[in-house]
C-alpha cells in the first residue's frame, strides 16, 4: 500500500476522478440556474435602464397602426411585438410594465418579509401575552381575503404608486411571520441559540447574527413563493382598475386590457403573460438554489 499525499489544491484526498473545470463549473451553477440568473439580471436591467432602450414612448399612439401583428405572425420589425388597440408599441409598453411591476413586486415582497420576520421574531422573543396578540393579528389577517382589504383601502385612501406598493407589502406577511416565529422558537430550544445566549449575547445578536442566517433559507423560499403571488395580485387589482392607473401600465394591467382582444390580437396579453410566467419561475428556481448554496452542510 502506498501512501499518497493529497493534492493541496483539492480540499481533501478523494477517490473520485478529478472533474474538468467546465464540468465543475456547471455542477456548481447548473445551466437552468445560469439561465435564471441571466433572465433576472435582464429584468433588473430593464427595470433600471429600460426607459433608455425603449424604441418609443409607451404612451405614444399611432391609430393607423392599430393591432398590427408581431414579427412572427406577419408583422414588420417596425413593431417587433406588434401594437395594441390604440396603436401603441407593445415592446415599449412591456418595458414600462416590467419596470413598474417588478419594482412593486420586489418592494412589496421586501416589505412583507421585513414585517413578517420582525413580528415573528418579536413573538418568539416575548412569548406570553405579546405572542398571543401577534398570533391573533396574524390569524385575523389570514382570515380576511386580502383582495377585499386592498379594494377597501384603495377605495378609501385613493391610489398612488407608493400607497399601492405598501399595500401589497402587507400581502403574505402573516405567512412569513408564522414561519419566522416557528423557526425562531425551534432555534431557541435548539442548542446553538441557547449556547450563544449563554455566552452573554444580546437578543439582537442572537436573532440577527445566529437565528436569522440559520432560518434565512426557509424564509427565502417563502419569499420567492410570495413574489409571484404579489405580481398576480397586482395584476388582479390593476385588471379591476384599482391598481396601476392608466396611462401608467403594468404587466397585470396589460394582461387585463389585452384580454378583450385575446382572439383577434393575442400578442397584446401573451407578451406580458410570458414575462410573468418566466420571471416567477426564475425567481422560484433561484430561491431554491440559493437555499442550497447558503447551507454549508450541503457543500
Amino acid at each position: 500500500m502506498t501512501i499518497t499525499t493529497p493534492d493541496p489544491r483539492q480540499g481533501s484526498a478523494s477517490v473520485f476522478t478529478a472533474k474538468s473545470r467546465a464540468r465543475a463549473f456547471f455542477q456548481k451553477y447548473p445551466i437552468l440556474i445560469l439561465l435564471s440568473i441571466f433572465w433576472i439580471v435582464l429584468m433588473l436591467a430593464v427595470a433600471g435602464l429600460g426607459h433608455l432602450v425603449a424604441p418609443r414612448d409607451f404612451m405614444a399612439m399611432n391609430l393607423s397602426e392599430r393591432l398590427s401583428e408581431p414579427v412572427g405572425m406577419g408583422g414588420t420589425w417596425a413593431y417587433p411585438l406588434g401594437t395594441d388597440e390604440l396603436g401603441r408599441d407593445v415592446v415599449s409598453r412591456l418595458i414600462a410594465s416590467i419596470r413598474i411591476s417588478l419594482t412593486i413586486a420586489f418592494l412589496a415582497t421586501l416589505v412583507s418579509a421585513t414585517i413578517g420576520v420582525a413580528l415573528g421574531f418579536l413573538a418568539a422573543f416575548l412569548r406570553g401575552r405579546a405572542e398571543q396578540t401577534i398570533l391573533m393579528v396574524i390569524d385575523a389577517q389570514a382570515a380576511m381575503p386580502f383582495m377585499i382589504i386592498a379594494l377597501a383601502v384603495l377605495a378609501f385612501l385613493g391610489n398612488s404608486l407608493t400607497l399601492f406598493t405598501i399595500l401589497l407589502g402587507f400581502y403574505g406577511w402573516e405567512r412569513i411571520a408564522r414561519i419566522a416565529r416557528g423557526l425562531a422558537i425551534a432555534a431557541q430550544d435548539q442548542g446553538y441559540a441557547a449556547a450563544v445566549r449563554d455566552l452573554g449575547a444580546s437578543p439582537s445578536r442572537i436573532y440577527g447574527l445566529h437565528i436569522l442566517p440559520n432560518i434565512a433559507s426557509t424564509l427565502l423560499v417563502s419569499m420567492t413563493l410570495n413574489f409571484p403571488e404579489v405580481i398576480l395580485l397586482e395584476s388582479g387589482l390593476s385588471f379591476l382598475g384599482l391598481g396601476v392607473q392608466p396611462p401608467e401600465t403594468s404587466l397585470g394591467a396589460m394582461v387585463g386590457y389585452g384580454r378583450d382582444y385575446i382572439q383577434s390580437a393575442p400578442w397584446i396579453m401573451l407578451a406580458p403573460a410570458a414575462v410573468i410566467v418566466v420571471t416567477t419561475l426564475c425567481v422560484s428556481l433561484l430561491g431554491d438554489w440559493l437555499r442550497d448554496l447558503f447551507d454549508p452542510t450541503l457543500r
Binding site: G191, Y192, A194, V196, L199, G200, H210, P213, N214, P296
Partner: peptide, 30 residues
C-alpha cells in the same frame, strides 16, 4: 449577560451547541 464573562457552560451535545453556519474560529472568537 455580564455575569456570563465569569460563568460559562459546556454542553453535552457539542454539535447542537454550535452554529452550523459559522466557521469555528468565528464561534470561538464570539
Amino acid at each position: 449577560r455580564r455575569l456570563r464573562r465569569r460563568m460559562q457552560m459546556i454542553y453535552q451535545d457539542p454539535l447542537g451547541a454550535l452554529d452550523r453556519r459559522l466557521p469555528i474560529v468565528a464561534q470561538i472568537g464570539e
